[in-house]
């Protein structure tokens, strides 16, 4: 099928380097991948096009790039799906990292963050002579995270990194979870304590971009949520984030419905005078705009709350295993 690849190019060695778009028109099979298309451009139309690629089978993680606005592996993106809306496919380098040349980005900030979470097993000592005995289920669960190929696609499309380059980011957090959830690792508390700091696990905004774009089904945000749950379980020093989750849960348990003012006050803590004062202008504005339901600022419990309470109790006694599907 006739396809146009509209590629964002950048040559740092030009006199005044500036990105520009270049279009290549070529015949491709519907079953070809975008990477096949790019290789065909390089081999038959323009051998100066720079991109990273290697395995062609979505295992090496080299060919992360933005295709029609979303990060993806070029080798895993089919021409047929990329041309659903238009026969022109937009190809750009990944976001949230500097561009070196054409589709090649500088991944060193990515690796720096991976390094930051101390990505190696820290087993308890003494280490057994034979292998560690570990539940099969735990190892299978970890394999869902170990499939991460560090392609950077989740980092490219992370909404938090877009506004704050200091956020540790979805890939590093998923990697951290891989150790936190490893029964052989002995540094859980230390790891979670580090992630409890600003820029860590509580800074994720749960936008699900990473879940959507991850080519390997790792579900980085799900892993971040699991880290948060483990953080709460471990009774780490509370953060605004963990209190928010705790208070939210408590309100639903007791009322069935949310009380925004109560949530805010209890999340910041009654004694956090600075944050509470900070809320006053919003409170005044809300009042002025009559943003208060007829029933008043604080909700009464919904009818049937006793049932909710019983379900809370029953569901949380059961054994916890989070499903990713």
């Amino acid at each position: 099928m006739n396809t146009t690849l509209r590629i964002r190019r950048f040559n740092p060695e030009q006199k005044t380097p500036a990105p520009f778009f270049q279009e290549y028109n070529l015949e491709l099979e519907a079953s070809d991948s975008v990477l096949d298309g790019l290789i065909k451009v390089r081999e038959t139309l323009d051998d100066s096009l720079a991109l990273r690629c290697s395995c062609r089978g979505a295992i090496c993680g080299s060919c992360g790039m933005r295709i029609n606005g979303h990060a993806a592996l070029a080798c895993k993106t089919k021409i047929i799906s990329a041309t659903k809306d238009s026969q022109t496919i937009h190809v750009e380098p990944m976001n949230n990292m500097p561009v070196i040349k054409d589709l090649i980005t500088d991944m060193s900030p990515f690796w720096e963050k991976i390094r930051q979470i101390q990505p190696w097993l820290q087993p308890s000592t003494p280490i057994p002579e034979a292998e560690h005995v570990a539940p099969a289920e735990a190892m299978n669960h970890l394999s869902g995270v170990m499939t991460c190929i560090m392609c950077g696609v989740c980092v490219s499309d992370c909404t938090v990194l877009e506004v704050d380059s200091k956020f540790v980011g979805p890939a590093a957090l998923a990697k951290a979870y891989r150790f936190v959830a490893d029964p052989r690792d002995d540094a859980t508390t230390r790891r979670l304590t580090a992630l409890n700091e600003p820029g860590g696990m509580w800074d994720c905004t749960r936008c699900m971009e990473c879940i959507q774009v991850c080519p390997k089904g790792v579900g980085p945000m799900d892993r971040i949520m699991s880290l948060r749950a483990k953080g709460i379980d471990e009774q780490l020093p509370s953060t605004t984030g963990s209190r928010h989750a705790e208070v939210f849960t408590d309100i639903i348990k007791n009322k069935g419905i949310l009380d925004e003012p109560m949530l805010a006050v209890r999340t910041f803590g009654f004694r956090n005078v600075r944050r509470l004062i900070g809320m006053i202008p919003i409170a005044i504005q809300s009042f002025r705009h009559k943003k208060i339901a007829p029933s008043g600022p604080l909700h009464r419990a919904i009818p049937g709350i006793d049932q909710i309470k019983r379900l809370f109790k029953r569901a949380s006694v059961e054994n916890h295993t989070f499903r990713n599907k």
Partner: peptide, 18 residues
């Protein structure tokens, strides 16, 4: 009128199955 909050993804941070 008797349905509870969905949890808004926040309750799920603490306990997804709940």
């Amino acid at each position: 009128t008797t349905a509870a909050c969905t949890g808004a993804g926040v309750l799920q941070e603490k306990d997804p199955r709940l």
